[in-house]
Design a protein around this nucleic acid. Structure first.
Lengths: 226, 226
DNA sequence: CAGGCATATTTTGTCAACAATAGTGACTTT
DNA sequence: AAAGTCACTATTGTTGACAAAATATGCCTG
């Protein structure tokens, strides 16, 4: 047994998770001003733990608080979304490089099978963008973890991904280029399997850069409004 | 008037600042287990705001909390410190590139004068490592802000720098290579002034990489113990 | 004498009432 | 009539008391 420690789940954690998913899923719209008492009744919580959760969410940048004036969900402009992708580019590039150097063989095998599953899902649920988005998240999640860089994984998984996902739900994976993305994923995994960190970094950066430009183009075309 | 909004300072903010500086300065030693009531009496606070601040600090990675078991200051191994520098390398590289593209001429002038002040301080307080550390922080702070990438600045200034500074206080700027660092800083500013983003990124990455290797070497020599 | 179990204590997690502040509306004044 | 000011209300910030949980201690048993 690797982990028998059952992290007791406190009400503040519950509040945190509820709010985070509510924000990511869009149940709480960006810019929406929300009262504490309303949130309490909505999630069956009391104000103590709620405030604790609000503090955490604020320091993660998912919502902004003005003293005595209430909290509101952060609203990210398209420019800011592009900046997020630029950060992802360099950080995930680093993650891919370190993953190539440090992942175990078992983890790499798991990466391969993950991609196979994604391919099957794309063939089958042809056009179901939601699965594609989740699959993409799964892939990047594994690489962040595989980097064996705790802080890097924390920043990617705990900060950036939530903000990006917040928009992916709304755009419902605007990228909409499942096959292309899958091919890029395959090449990245190949580089990792060959323990070629430099190549993995390069491919990952290019992959995220392509995703960013794709979204940028779609927004410019007016097909998407944030 | 650009900013007439007086951010009212709440008790939770006070608690947050107190704890953060206490951790960074080393008044609260890493690994030290601290009780909530003790902290309250120490900083003249009550438990409500304190707990809010603890939540924020936890999500920033400065302390770890185990439910019902108390909080303790995070203790970072040398390996983890090196990982922090690797993250800094790519993120500050990006910051330098974007700063070169976006900083105003006034900001660049300010950067120059900042470096002049650092040089004077180094000459004068010859060996006073503390000023060097603060000067270094000032330099990197300006570039992070100048990147015009809000999230990037937040992650650097709000997360990474505090963790690194936490160790700089303890090592009392182990780097101890003030003149060399100043020269590197000058070259980075030159690249920014010439709006050469690519070069600025390259120089910044090399600068941080050199700092990392320097610390790594000193630790390996046994001169420093964390 | 050592190990495990039960109890007791300390510490954290939670709650509900109180105080302070910002936003809002009406009123007065120019 | 418009603008500024004052008071009010609703919401947030804070406090202290209560409940639950984990660690530590001491006792009992093998």
């Amino acid at each position: 047994m690797p982990e028998a420690v059952i992290q007791t789940y406190t009400r503040a954690d519950e509040a945190f998770d509820c709010l985070q998913t509510a924000i990511v899923k869009g149940d709480l719209a960006p810019g929406e001003k929300i009262g504490e008492v309303e949130l309490c009744s909505r999630f069956n919580l009391t104000r103590g733990p709620l405030r604790e959760a609000l503090g955490r969410l604020e320091s993660r940048g998912l919502l902004v608080r003005r003293p005595h004036a209430g909290v509101k969900v952060v609203s990210v402009s398209t420019d800011e979304l592009m900046e997020l992708y630029r950060i992802r580019e360099v950080m995930e590039g680093l993650a891919a490089r370190q993953a190539a150097e440090r992942m175990t063989d078992d983890e790499i095998t798991a990466l391969h099978t993950t991609l196979d599953a994604h391919e099957a899902m794309i063939e089958q649920a042809h056009g179901q963008a939601y699965y594609q988005a989740e699959g993409d998240y799964d892939f990047h999640h594994r690489i962040a973890t595989g980097s064996r860089n705790a802080k890097l994984a924390q920043m990617l998984l705990g900060d950036l991904y939530y903000m990006v996902r917040m928009y992916r739900y709304r755009l419902s994976t605007a990228s909409g280029r499942p096959h292309m993305a899958l091919g890029e994923h395959r090449r990245i995994v190949e580089a990792i399997a060959q323990r070629d960190g430099e190549l993995a970094e390069f491919l990952m950066k290019r992959h995220i850069n392509a995703a960013r430009r794709n979204i940028e183009r779609k927004i410019a075309e007016g097909g998407l409004t944030i």
